[in-house]
Design a binder for these strands. Sequence first.
DNA 1: TCATTAAATTTTA
DNA 2: TAAAATTTAATGA
Length: 198
Amino acid sequence: MIIDEDLLLENGAICEDYEPKTILFKEGDSPHYYFQIISGTVELNNYHEDGKEFTFNILSAGQSIGESLLFSDNNYPMNAVVKTRSQILKLPKSVFLDLIRKDQDITLNFFRCLSDRLYYKYIMLFNNSSADPLTKISCLLNYFKGFSGDKGQFTYHVPFTRQQIANLTGLCVETVIRSIKKMEKQNVVRITNRKIYY
DNA sequence: TCATTAAATTTTA
DNA sequence: TAAAATTTAATGA
């Protein structure tokens, strides 16, 4: 978790319930709030001219949304869409900035999270420039597994649909399906009831 | 080889 | 039970 939930509430954060498909903000909006997820998942995405979706990241409990935009005058370069029923804390940008100014521990922890995000961006950028779909997918799985803290083999349940993996890697669903199957043959992943274990 | 299109089947809400 | 997700198959770049 980035910032303690109680601390956010003490400072006037509002906790709101969101239904799937709710748009928290969209491309071009100016950032007014710091968002932090209590439960549920939120997707950061954008659409190409042909309507094809590209996913930047899929965020879940404890993570903040679009936090890197709160320190400049840039507008959001992406959309934030609620994927599953979510509880999300919302804190006005000005209050958030005050919090950062006042409390060093918060600031340091926040930087650590920004650093993680940036690290993810580098990994994914390089990953997405790879030509081989198998490399792309296993690298993605590897990153998220590491993030989850799960160490055993085939014990990490991949929390994404094949469509989501496709959107994260720029591949089409069918290629993801075929690649995952190939990876199962190579004993890299295991599939039980259509769920992917890595 | 991978993307695209189409269609069938299964799962989920 | 309708919508979403998964899968297979055919075709084209």
